[in-house]
Amino acid sequence: MAGSGAPTADEMLLRTLRNVWPALPALLFGSVAVCLASALTVLLAPGITPVSTLLAGLLVAPCAAALAEVGNALAAGREATVTGWWRGLRRLWRFGTAQGLVVAVPVAAFLAALAVWRNGGGAWVLPSLAVSGAVGVLALPALAAVLPLGAARGDLRGRRLWTCGLYLVARWPHRFLAGPALAVLGVWAAVHWTASVLLLVPGPAAVVAAAAVWTTLPDPRRPTTAP
């Protein structure tokens, strides 16, 4: 707002991009951690199954939450370091796990119901299939807003946090689709060129997600680390 001293959306975006270069070690370290957690999930539960989905919520989401905190630091103009990422992981692992399970549980329920239906389950499976599928479709894109927003705002938790995340994604879907689109592009590049490209995907996706949050709020404010 004029006269409030708060940065505009364009200023927030430029500040975030300017801070990327010195934060490359933290972004790379966080990306590697997310990839290692993903690889462990694949090793323990190959394929897209209810078990692998729940494992991803338990293993990958905490690392992603810490990486989202790095993105918040860039948007705030703070120094983003590997040590800061580690502190973020220690502070946010419970938060990240909880938010990951909010997404993983309905997706796992959908996959389980789909398996039952394919194996001859009757019409009684369809309501579960529809409800879990709808919740999963809503929760997956909202997670891109929930992680950076919740990492920065300790007062936003539970239903209030997810309501804010869903509102932001519904109001400006093109901004919040940028992160997932970047991730899909990275997976495509890894499949067609080299798997090592995957190590470079989570960091930029986290930066894009944080930028989407802090350039989308009606009154963009400097994200602060919750105590």
Rank of each mutant, 00 (worst) to 15 (best):
M1Q: 10
A2E: 07
A2D: 07
G3L: 12
G5P: 13
G5A: 11
A6F: 11
P7M: 05
T8W: 01
A9S: 15
D10M: 12
D10I: 06
M12E: 05
R15P: 01
R15Q: 09
T16K: 05
T16M: 06
T16E: 01
L17P: 11
R18Y: 02
R18G: 03
N19R: 08
P22G: 06
P22R: 09
L24E: 00
P25D: 05
G30W: 02
V34K: 02
A37I: 13
A39Q: 14
L40S: 12
L40F: 06
V42W: 04
V42I: 04
A45V: 13
G47C: 00
S52C: 14
T53W: 00
L54A: 04
L55K: 10
P62F: 10
P62R: 08
A64E: 13
A64N: 12
A65R: 03
A65D: 03
A68H: 04
V70A: 08
N72H: 07
N72C: 10
G77L: 00
A80T: 01
T81L: 00
T83E: 03
G84F: 02
W85H: 02
G88K: 03
R90Q: 11
W93V: 12
F95I: 04
A98K: 08
Q99S: 07
G100I: 01
L101E: 02
L101Y: 01
V103C: 14
A104G: 09
V107G: 00
A109L: 12
L111P: 04
L111R: 01
A112D: 09
W117L: 01
A123E: 13
W124P: 00
V125K: 00
L126H: 08
P127D: 00
S128R: 02
L129G: 02
L129V: 06
L129R: 00
V131F: 05
S132A: 12
V135K: 09
G136W: 04
L138W: 15
L140E: 13
P141A: 05
L143M: 14
A144L: 12
A145I: 04
V146K: 01
P148H: 07
L149S: 03
G150E: 08
G150Y: 08
R153Q: 12
G154V: 06
D155T: 15
L156P: 13
R159A: 11
R159Q: 09
R160I: 07
R160A: 13
L161E: 11
W162G: 07
T163E: 13
T163V: 08
C164P: 14
C164S: 15
C164Q: 15
G165I: 01
V169D: 03
A170L: 11
A170G: 11
R175D: 09
F176S: 05
L177F: 13
A178N: 08
A181W: 09
L185A: 06
G186Q: 07
G186W: 04
V187F: 12
W188N: 14
A190H: 12
V191H: 13
H192P: 07
V197T: 00
V197I: 01
L199Q: 00
L199P: 05
G203F: 01
P204K: 10
P204W: 07
V207P: 01
V207K: 02
V208C: 10
A210V: 00
A211D: 06
A212W: 05
A212R: 05
A212C: 08
L217I: 03
L217V: 05
P218G: 14
P220Y: 04
P223A: 08
A226C: 10
P227F: 15
